[in-house]
């Protein structure tokens, strides 16, 4: 298995700056390497799955993209910029950890997002809330787990960002909520933006992925378009299981 795979999207016009670029990206905690030599390029208009077992480095990459961690070496660039104020304006991030303030109402959170993010669309947000029959005046702490995850998702998807980074968006929710979440992701697709989706639940998610990146033990194992994998007679889930057979 190669561990320095460069992953280029063939749909990219070469003149465009890629939405996400990682060059020889490494991260270690002290002597313990968590990410080793990652090279990734994501062009616009793609839905990319970052697939791997827990602890393989997916969340670390996502934190590096969002500036929650700094690289040990190498660089990560978002639309050509390193993580900072400029990159945060164009990244919409759904963390796996729930960071919403339980004491706030949904509406307050919407106002917060709307205030700080120019690309936030209140119209889209309230539209989706209505279709979910969630009252904006409800306190976040009183929402059911499924509803809470949905609200977090639609907050993320109501922005017209360039790069959407979703960390385990369907973990821990019931199948109906999962379908809703995946459909929302498809519906909010735009050819000008891309989605990076990290998960270990491959079979539920593979139908919406353009491209997949397999990671394990801090290294990229493999990267390709999903249908290319299927052209060889296997589903992405199957290939994943074979790759990571315990």
């Amino acid at each position: 298995m190669q561990n320095n795979d460069s992953f280029l999207n063939t749909s990219a016009a070469s003149a465009d700056i890629p939405l996400l670029e990682c060059r020889n990206l490494c991260k270690s905690y002290g002597a313990l390497p968590v990410l080793y030599n990652w090279n990734i390029t994501i062009a616009k208009g793609r839905i990319v799955g970052l697939l791997g077992p827990n602890g393989s480095g997916k969340t670390t990459l996502i934190k590096l993209i969002n500036g929650l961690l700094t690289p040990t070496s190498g660089e990560v660039l978002i639309c050509g910029n390193p993580p900072g104020v400029e990159s945060k304006k164009v990244i919409s991030y759904l963390s796996d950890k729930d960071a919403l303030d339980s004491g706030m109402r949904v509406e307050d959170t919407i106002n917060l997002y709307s205030d700080f993010f120019e690309d936030f669309s209140e119209e889209r947000m309230y539209g989706m809330l209505k279709r979910l029959s969630i009252d904006p005046m409800t306190k976040i702490g009183t929402l059911s787990k499924g509803n809470r995850e949905k609200v977090r998702l639609i907050l993320t998807m109501s922005r017209e960002a360039k790069l959407y980074v979703l960390d385990e968006p369907i973990g821990g929710v019931d199948p109906a909520a999962r379908d809703y979440i995946l459909d929302t992701i498809i519906k909010n697709y735009s050819p000008e933006s891309s989605i990076l989706l990290s998960t270990h639940l491959i079979s539920d998610v593979e139908r919406i992925l353009d491209d997949v990146i397999f990671v394990s033990n801090g290294q990229i194992m493999f990267a390709d378009a999903a249908d290319n994998i299927r052209a060889q007679g296997k589903s992405v889930d199957q290939l994943f299981r074979e790759t990571y057979r315990f």
């Binding site: 969002n66 929650l68 104020v85 945060k88 990244i91 991030y93 960071a99 919403l100 303030d101």
Partner: peptide, 13 residues
């Protein structure tokens, strides 16, 4: 702590 995720994703120095 818990709110750090939100804090650092805001486009603020």
């Amino acid at each position: 702590g818990n709110q750090a995720y939100l804090t650092y994703t805001l486009p603020v120095e």
